[in-house]
Nucleic acid binder design. Structure first.
Length: 475
RNA sequence: CGGGGAAUGGCGCAGUCUGGUAGCGCGCACGGUUUGGGACCGUGAGGUCCCGGGUUCAAAUCCCGGUUCCCCGACCA
């Protein structure tokens, strides 16, 4: 009786159904923009808080920069403006008058950051600068999809400046690790860390790294990126410092970003035919209580017990919700399942008599996930269960990811592998090779880190290579 | 910018070919019966049929012009 399209049947429709049934978003009046409704936004906020804590733990601080950037700023870094100009939203009229210089609505903040850093940084004592921004940016996308690709999207962008390349590269890798850990430890979402091909680099970077996650339809999603900007932006914006040796040097800068598409990814990784499945750490509601009664007499007794359980769980710091809506239990069960609430607590007359509750865990489908447990000690039981659910969601996703990657050594093998999974293929890092892949409707996601060294032939050019690239259809 | 659809109550749609009282399902409101896996009965509210023009006694329907949105490509977190 599920209202949502089965995941296996039409993944795209399933995704939209799930978002809609979970009441996560609405479409905005301007095409390509969306409204994040409270349930969706709360989930994003919880993910944001978890990630922000990791930033703080690695010594970063938050700041806020303007959304309006002079067009001339973008022009200062050649490849940057070339990369972004097709997707810019530009303000040409302000206060009813034509502006002398067009203003760009930020597509990303490297340029306005560069301008500020050039004024803020004078001495080696000012370094490193480790700043993060939580904001929204605008890119005029041709085709959009809620959370995965919207014209305005929320994200964080980190911008750091360092005295040496060793230091800035360490920062790039550290933040990629932070993203990976956020995925695994906060969101139960595994991903593959690696270096992007030259062709896929951020406009203006000398090196780009990413984490790639596998969605439920085996397509890849770039879930986070961390860029080594070298000295490109330092040159363009004159970010210099006087070093210990009394010589003026250019800074080495980095930037890294993770957007609310990560949340779209989370949904596509964990969801099932019943809807969302959310990891307890970030779920807006961790447990919901559904009272069951059929007359006023039962209702009084049941609600007394339900209210008491609610108060206990709340006091224990669990994000718990009482669903006392006037609806049948079956409706409520489905409703909360679609919203991905990790645990459901049913309290009816039988439970009142037994001092028990029915406890259903969302990570296990159907009756198998339901058990009857005592009311006493429920908070502790839930906390243990939340850890189990997190591990079980991660395990399921990790096994799915690992079992759908195939090492291939020929073009035919690659073509076959990407029909239903990811391929690890020896590939030369050359834009022409990436273009060939594109003809096959697939892309070079990244060159995963930590590969065993080897000597192979590129599946496209036949040239010798020592690295394998992850090739997949992607979002 | 190419190729294909669509616009009718809050949502999803039928009605358009062949012009003739504005319909259905869901949702919503009220009343009642229900309630351990998406209940049921009754009553009710709610619509400039995307916009502009034309044809006609009469247009959601036919003709002309325009707008917007969606899907598939190119671009991308």
């Amino acid at each position: 009786m599920a209202k949502i399209t089965p995941r296996s049947q039409d993944f795209n429709q399933w995704y939209l159904d799930v978002l809609k049934e979970a009441d996560m978003f609405d479409y905005g009046p301007v095409g390509g923009t969306i409204i994040a409704k409270p349930y969706g936004w709360t989930l994003y906020e919880n993910m944001k808080d978890a990630l922000d804590k990791r930033f703080k733990d690695t010594g970063h601080v938050n700041a806020q920069f303007p959304m309006f950037i002079p067009m001339s700023f973008l022009r200062r870094e050649q490849s940057h403006v070339e990369g972004f100009s097709p997707e810019l939203a530009v303000v040409t009229i302000g206060g009813g008058e034509e502006l002398a210089e067009p203003i760009v609505v930020r597509p990303t903040s490297e340029t306005i950051i560069g301008d500020a850093y050039s004024r803020w940084i004078n001495s080696y004592r000012d370094l490193p600068v480790l700043i993060n921004l939580w904001n929204s940016v605008v890119r005029w996308e041709k085709r959009t999809k809620p959370f995965l690709r919207t014209m305005e999207f929320y994200w964080q962008e980190g911008h750091t400046a360092h005295a040496t390349h060793e230091e800035s590269w360490a920062e790039v890798m550290q933040m990629l690790d932070v993203y990976h850990a956020h995925g695994v430890e906060d969101c139960a979402m595994p991903s593959v860390k690696g270096r992007k091909s030259k062709n896929e680099r951020f406009a203006g970077a000398i090196n780009t790294t990413s984490i790639e996650a596998m969605m439920g339809d085996k397509r890849a999603l770039q879930a986070g990126t961390s860029h080594d900007l070298g000295q490109n932006f330092a040159k363009a914006f004159n970010i210099k410092f006087l070093d210990k040796d009394n010589t003026e040097k250019l800074c080495w800068t980095t930037s890294w970003g993770l957007s609310w598409r990560f949340m779209g990814g989370l949904i596509m990784v964990h969801g099932d035919d019943q809807g969302l499945r959310l990891p307890p750490k970030i779920a807006p509601i961790q447990a919901v209580i559904v009272p069951i009664h059929k007359n006023d007499d039962e209702k009084t007794k049941v609600m007394e017990a339900a209210d008491r359980v609610f108060a206990e769980l709340k006091a224990a710091g669990i994000r718990v919700k009482m669903d006392d809506r006037d609806a049948t239990p079956g409706f409520k069960f489905n409703d909360w399942e679609m919203r991905g609430v990790p645990a459901r607590i049913e309290i009816g007359p039988k439970d009142v008599a037994n001092s028990s509750v029915a406890l259903a865990r969302r990570d296990v489908a159907g009756k198998a996930g339901k058990s009857f447990v005592p009311q006493a000690g429920l908070a502790d039981r839930l906390k243990t269960l939340f850890v189990e659910i997190h591990e079980s969601l991660h395990k399921q996703a990790a096994e799915f990811l690992n079992s759908n990657i195939r090492e291939v050594n020929t073009l035919d093998e690659l073509k076959e592998a990407v029909q239903d999974g990811w391929a690890l293929a020896p590939l030369v890092d050359d834009p022409a090779v990436d273009a060939k892949l594109k003809e096959m409707q697939v892309t070079n996601r990244n060159y995963p880190f930590g590969q065993a060294a080897g000597e192979w032939k590129c599946v496209i050019t036949g040239q010798p290579v020592t690295e394998r690239a992850l090739v997949a259809r992607a979002y």
